[in-house]
Nucleic acid binder design. Structure first.
Lengths: 228, 228
DNA sequence: GCGTTAATATGAGTATACTCATTTTTTGGG
DNA sequence: CCCAAAAAATGAGTATACTCATATTAACGC
């Protein structure tokens, strides 16, 4: 019964043809399989939601055996988490390519960054709630709140720290150091949580909250006043 | 059933003191069963951890059928969550009975409260990580970050708000309103997360962080200075 | 007591994330 | 080409949270 599926269509048309290129057949096929899984998962999650999508369905749609899926992703949640990591990275890249944003004052910068990120993960809204919380789990590599435990090797944390360092250098902010990174991470998490709960049109409440929080923080830090 | 004493039932006659005690057999047995479940669960969670404890084991230890467990708690996680709600309530009660704490300035007050809470949930440490995150889930009743969605009916939020109101009244803090409640809730969550990751002796790192955060916040708010 | 109704208990059954021993495919050396 | 080892795929099997139709028990009016 096996074998009916994957059959490499092209037998080798002799060894000469395929001169072991850099990728190699194996690596290439692996990549493709992974892509198929991700496509299938994304489509199904979007259509039926994270919980109602079974790993069996995903495998079928990706045309692989169910077990294979777990060779690529340790758990179903890891599979979903993949999208956020990707988007986060995209967001970081975006930042470093946009001179205007980079030059802006801290509050504007943070506002733009968060807004950008929220825009990007919008499609995953339905299932992000089910999954992003995992990132807070004590052992998770994505946990922005376990700074002292893990040695700041993680991309995302490094990014936050870079932004903060720059602001400290420009004296936009007092030298908070680690503490600041932690606080920023926490604040981001708060916004994300609020966003998840936000039923307002175009998530405007979240943006309003974000704006208010940044303005307030800025004003408190700069002039020690709270009349905003 | 109980004695065969005829009990000429009367239609109404509310005055009938006949039925000895208020509880009634049913309510009583229900209470006992619930208690048995909680005891069994607590012991097993403590001994084997949340994930390795099966609902079957819990039922057996509580001497009930497996299905019965789910008549009392919708999910296994709800069962675990029960302990936190209880401890939180205990904590709130403790606060209102301690005049000294109530009279203290806000930072000391918050420090004492959090420390007290952490002390109390210490025994559940092993499994709290697995479960408390659920509280952040968009729909959760415990989510301290979904203020505007849910109308502040929840005990815990009300408590935070009361404390903040009082501080605002005493002018220890500017009138932040809802915003303040949200921020406090978020801060508490941050501490809890840090605590979960804290491997230091006696969780002293967490206490240090808490102290630092409160001192800093206080100083920034009061004098607009950040030399602390 | 007896009958009726509603609450509660039951445990076999279901769904599904994940495992693992086995099979298939790829690679690379002779 | 062929073979052996490594990598990857496979799908039947497992574990377990949770459901549900049925059975048991309590409550209460007569």
């Amino acid at each position: 019964m096996a074998t009916s599926t994957k059959r490499p269509a092209r037998k080798q048309s002799t060894s000469s043809r395929s001169t072991k290129k850099a990728p190699g057949k194996r690596a290439k096929s692996k990549e493709q399989t992974k892509a198929r899984i991700l496509n299938a998962a994304l489509e199904l999650f979007g259509k039926k939601g994270f919980y109602k999508t079974t790993t069996k369905e995903i495998s079928q749609k990706a045309r692989i055996a169910e077990g294979t899926l777990f060779n690529y992703f340790k758990t179903k949640e890891d599979l979903a988490l993949y999208f956020f990591e990707t988007e986060l990275q995209t967001c970081i890249d975006w930042y470093y390519k946009d001179d205007y944003v980079q030059a802006a004052p801290l509050p504007e910068k943070l506002f733009a960054l968060v807004q950008h990120y929220l825009d990007r993960i919008e499609p995953y809204q339905e299932f992000i709630g089910a999954v992003y919380l995992r990132a807070l789990q004590p052992r998770s590599k994505l946990n922005p709140l376990s700074l002292e435990v893990q040695e700041l090797r993680i991309r995302e944390l490094k990014f936050i720290r870079d932004i903060l360092d720059e602001a400290e250098e420009k004296e936009e902010v007092p030298p908070f150091g680690e503490f600041g990174v932690y606080a920023l991470g926490l604040g981001f998490m708060g916004i994300l949580t609020y966003w998840l709960n936000d039923r307002s049109e175009g998530k405007e409440n979240t943006l309003a909250l974000l704006d208010r929080a940044l303005t307030l923080a800025n004003s408190v830090l700069r002039q020690g006043g709270w009349e905003w």
